[in-house]
Design a binder for these strands. Structure first.
Lengths: 164, 164
DNA sequence: AGTCAGTTGACACCCAGTTGCAACTACTGT
DNA sequence: ACAGTAGTTGCAACTGGGTGTCAACTGACT
């Protein structure tokens, strides 16, 4: 049984299915004794609340609205911090817009990203089959899974219908 | 039912399961009317026969042994050509060694790459559950899938056993 | 309030990948 | 076999995401 979370153009991100939750990043950082600087508060807040998939440059832009002296390097360092703690996921979105990476707060359920080569839309796809596959992979290979990334590129339903 | 293809350190690539085949890249290119230059013959031959996952720099190195005037740009352009024709897959292998990309000739069955953060080994994992998941995603979302990339990062069986 | 390890901003740097262009060449039609 | 030409190559300069270094700063302890 799968829940297709909807589609939105231009790297937009759909509202989450009610069964999907995002734990508070700040809380997790505090719990782990990570020093909370004003810059981290700003950056983590933006990632936590974002409805879109953010790349480093966009994240910097948004952060500068709250702290105009914040630096590129700090953005990258904070991203690395959150990755190290397993609090965010890194995505390529099939390089629809170049080599940059996108980030999103980790949710309680892994999901797949389907990127449309025509319209640039991203569909987030949650499925129990995906969970089962993960479990099967771990069991059969003896691998301890820490990160999973499932990305699909192709043409979405809408573009298939509207293009010759 | 899954076939775990084995494990090899340092981005090594295991021998393929007998049910997995790699169609001839050159033949496909000729069929499609692509111009066959000496450089392309060299590069495509290397990719076709490689037992490892190749990045652009390694591919250039190997190519230079056959044609010492071959250029970086030609390597990137050939990779783009093969990608455009859907003949190779692009991998990140969880950025185990930086941001570069790896390439492999597309096989008749999609497979997952499991990257060990400790030893750098890559396990290739083929599973009918994966095929089923793909079919389910396509059906439920109306998405026409052209490329799929499933990568997993974690700790392999061997490293879990040998490390404190 | 004082301490100091961890963090920041600034800036130079790295490196994978791209681009523009003149010279070259694989294929086509003859 | 040969010439014409569209597609390809090598070169060199460039782009852009990301990193390293280091002096100055600051959050979280006592």
């Amino acid at each position: 049984m799968a829940t297709q979370v909807a589609k939105e153009s231009q790297l937009g991100r759909s509202k989450q299915d009610s069964s999907i939750t995002r734990p508070s990043l700040m809380k997790k950082l505090v719990e782990r004794g990570v020093r909370i600087t004003s810059q981290r508060r700003v950056l983590v807040g933006i990632i936590q609340d974002s409805e879109r998939h953010l790349d480093a440059a966009k994240l910097l832009d948004l952060a500068k609205k709250q702290d105009r002296y914040i630096d590129r390097a700090t953005v990258y360092r904070t991203i690395a911090l959150l990755k190290r703690h397993g609090l965010i996921d890194e995505l390529d979105l099939m390089h629809l817009e170049g080599e940059k990476h996108y980030y999103e707060a980790k949710t309680n359920r892994d999901h797949c990203h389907m990127a449309c080569f025509r319209c640039g839309g991203i569909i987030e796809y949650v499925s129990s089959s995906f969970e089962k596959l993960k479990a099967e992979m771990a069991r059969q290979s003896g691998f301890q899974i820490r990160v999973v990334r499932l990305e699909v590129g192709g043409v979405c339903k809408h573009c298939r219908a509207t293009t010759a």
